[in-house]
Design a protein around this nucleic acid. Structure first.
Lengths: 236, 236
DNA sequence: ACCTGAACACCGTTCAAGT
DNA sequence: ACCTGAACACCGTTCAAGT
């Protein structure tokens, strides 16, 4: 009577957290495709429809999984935090630690990439990197480009791909005025960056984040570096 | 009687190509999620089961879509080909043109990323970039790292994400000896690169493509570039 | 050779009903 | 408050059958 070995199991009843834990377990073991409402319920010793009492639906479950991975990354980063670290070292550490976590949950990059709307927790990771860059003395302009260039490195994967439209939804950047104050509070650096970049593009407000320009910046960053390593001491 | 306006329509019968064309149309119009066997058949004025006569199944259809996008990229690149172009300029042009095509098919990056096995046509794009690098004088070692670093730029998307395991399948690099000759013929540069890198790692054959090393190389490439643009003239 | 109808084993989700 | 059963509208796919 001390322990139930499986099924509705262990202590107490169903919980959003227990559901998310079980979902992560399935994803880690059998891949994200194995995470179906019916399988998940089965592992929890419950009927599929019971899950809807704790989560509004599958989309919400997937958002919860992303949040869980981001939380794991932030935990890892917090544990290794140092003071008196340059921006370069801090950004580098963050990217490497994110990668460690992603290796434990190889389904996560694909999931994050396929989400139609970027979960707020992911913005938090970018906010922290941006903070490091700006505190390190980079201009908002350069820091903005750095965020684009570092792109998926911030999340811990390189060489990998995602489409904002893969899930069909376009990323909606419209923000209600009411939410803006809230945004400025939780993501102060990102808010300031957008404000700064918008101001610099008074003549062309729509061009403040031109993806063509960002793409070429990143591409040239990489090509410059490769050229430099190919012939190490160019005449400057 | 001259024209049928819709349905089984136009000239003749169902064809693999007509099916793929229709699938691309649906994906462009309503997103990849709208491409179901039933919807696709409906648009072609046919029953869903008829599709299976022309394609073995949905996986094959998706592979066909990837091939179609790659073909569009290669067409674009062929049209703008120049002789007497340095490796840097050629690689840059290829990446920018790939991006143009991807903008027309915004579902493509996500699709390519989610494929459990990398379609052969995609290897062709990397082969061409590798050829440019090697012919431009880069060592196989550096060219190998360049391929990792340029990563998704070669396919036309930056700042985006993909997991090899998102679809559950691990990328299988095992190659039967019989296929090796064939491979060497169609992808000579990639074959030579692997051979060269394997040779350089006689002591540690498994380490010839260590993803941790590649990740750090790319990360430092980007950080170097950002640092350089932050304070343009470092003491070297 | 090419296409179809009916059926199977799955999905996520709704909704009224149980306790 | 928490969980369930039956049902609905979808999937991809098989297989025997039509022409």
């Amino acid at each position: 009577m001390a322990r139930v070995t499986s099924g509705r199991s262990a202590r107490g009843t169903l919980t959003r957290d227990r559901v998310l834990d079980a979902a992560m377990g399935i994803a880690d073991a059998d891949g994200l495709a194995a995470v179906t409402m019916r399988r998940l319920a089965g592992d929890l010793g419950v009927e599929a429809m019971s899950l809807y009492y704790h989560l509004p639906g599958k989309e919400s479950l997937l958002d919860g999984l992303v949040d869980a991975v981001v939380a794991a990354i932030e935990k890892e980063i917090a544990q290794s935090a140092r003071s008196d670290e340059g921006w370069r070292s801090e950004v580098r550490r963050r990217c490497l630690l994110s990668r460690e976590v992603m290796k434990r949950h190889p389904w996560a990059p694909g999931l994050i990439g396929s989400r139609s709307t970027i979960p707020a927790s992911v913005f938090g990771l970018y906010e922290a990197v941006l903070a490091a860059l700006v505190e390190g003395g980079l201009s908002y302009r350069l820091a903005h480009r750095a965020l684009h260039a570092l792109g998926s490195m911030v999340l811990g994967f390189a060489q990998e791909v995602f489409s904002p439209s893969s899930a069909g939804g376009s990323v909606d950047v419209e923000v209600a005025e009411a939410d803006l104050a809230q945004l400025a509070q939780t993501l102060p650096y990102l808010t300031a960056m957008v404000a700064s970049e918008l101001h610099d593009h008074d003549d062309d407000p729509l061009g403040w984040c031109d993806s063509q320009t960002e793409f070429e910046f990143t591409l040239d960053l990489l090509l410059d570096g490769l050229e430099r390593r190919h012939r190490p001491a160019p005449a400057e």
